[in-house]
Design a protein around this nucleic acid. Sequence first.
DNA 1: CGATCTTGGTTGTATATACAAGTTTTTGCG
DNA 2: CGCAAAAACTTGTATATACAACCAAGATCG
Lengths: 241, 241
Amino acid sequence: MAVAKFAEIKDFMLTQIEIGAWPEHSRVPSENELAEQFSVSRMTARRALQELTEQGILYRTQGVGSFVAALKSQSSLLEIRNIADEIHSRGHSYRAQLLQLTELPCPATVAAALGLKHNERVYFSLIVHFEDQLPLQLEARYVNPRQIPEYIQQDFAHITPHLYLSQVAPLTEAEHTVEAILPDSFTCQHLQLKKPEACLRLTRRTFSRDGAVSLAYLTSPGSRYRLGGHLNFAPAGATRS
Amino acid sequence: MAVAKFAEIKDFMLTQIEIGAWPEHSRVPSENELAEQFSVSRMTARRALQELTEQGILYRTQGVGSFVAALKSQSSLLEIRNIADEIHSRGHSYRAQLLQLTELPCPATVAAALGLKHNERVYFSLIVHFEDQLPLQLEARYVNPRQIPEYIQQDFAHITPHLYLSQVAPLTEAEHTVEAILPDSFTCQHLQLKKPEACLRLTRRTFSRDGAVSLAYLTSPGSRYRLGGHLNFAPAGATRS
DNA sequence: CGATCTTGGTTGTATATACAAGTTTTTGCG
DNA sequence: CGCAAAAACTTGTATATACAACCAAGATCG
């Protein structure tokens, strides 16, 4: 089976929602209706509805039906920001230094994250971001060459990888992990740290419509960088389970 | 049906993981084995395995089997969760140790954050949260006595401060800061760190309708804890399985 | 008219079955 | 012994069926 049937139904429904044919809180076809439309069993149609529900795209109520959920309100916490903009907005000057831009055999962990095979070729860039002449962040990034074949030809002295990527492959999803680590000597050197100090490491995996695009490790000294966020629990939307 | 069968199987498996009978990366019973043990069909056993996999408790490989995932702590940055629930949902056991619960004269920084006067009385609690006998987080919390006058009489061996607070003063807003720090010796001691290691410090200020309620400093070793976040920018594209 | 009952539609749970696809182990042959 | 084929086992997908739980709306009865 080339593509699973339940995945086709999901794709169809996602498209309907995306183009606005099915607005927020509108009812979507029932399990039986989908089963008939796609000539599948109810259990297969159910799976599509089920998975979309788990992803927060739909909500369902027993005895009533399935509905399009309200689009997620984006939290400012860990908002995807361009670090250059961030620095400029603080009134400081920004500069980037490109250390490396190559093709590498894919490490296993990266392969898993990007859906590539072990040792398949992958693009890799290494950049230091400066705020007023002081290194603020070391960015190590792996990019999926199947999705962004021209990545390696860009000039990242003039455009940040993140900005470039969001232009050529619109973000649909992002996954973050924040850790506290002690940096290795290589990282210390490029961040101009005389002694190792606690650093924040943000691991960011971004997705476009067709899957994982890039995996970035962003390391910043704890003394120079922190993350802030603000959450509002104001007027609650329809958040049913 | 009082409790669904697949839920019973999930409970059983979570317990096995929690008590250490099934260590990390060990193989768990196959679909057919579980089906026989619990006298259910394979599809029902499968559902238990499936849902635990979606929760990140297990990982599965076609043709090989299902295994207990490595459970490095991960909490969502996008939601305020009770750390006890978080630990339980990972299949680990939770315990809290109350180190201090007193009234203090308010430090200047805390006064500013909570809208109190310098040296005004403020409640202070200090708690260590344990995951499977290992300290996961040191929680130092200042609470506004004007809003929560009964805070100091609670028994925080049985309810976490955050859960208590959200019950008596519903959250309307929260403010976060995440930093990487090297802990002082006091913190090291209570987190059972022999050497200082990089720690994540989450500073959280919560608000209720009538203003700032509490200011908490949550410190966790980088080797045991990390924060995770997931952002959706469109209802499209999330078709990874 | 109002309260209750019935009915049809919807989601939720569970089973038995079949085959596909991937991995590991065993078997058997050269 | 070495290697290839076969078997056994695992997860993945799909179907057909049955019944339970729940809800909304219409029908019925007092």
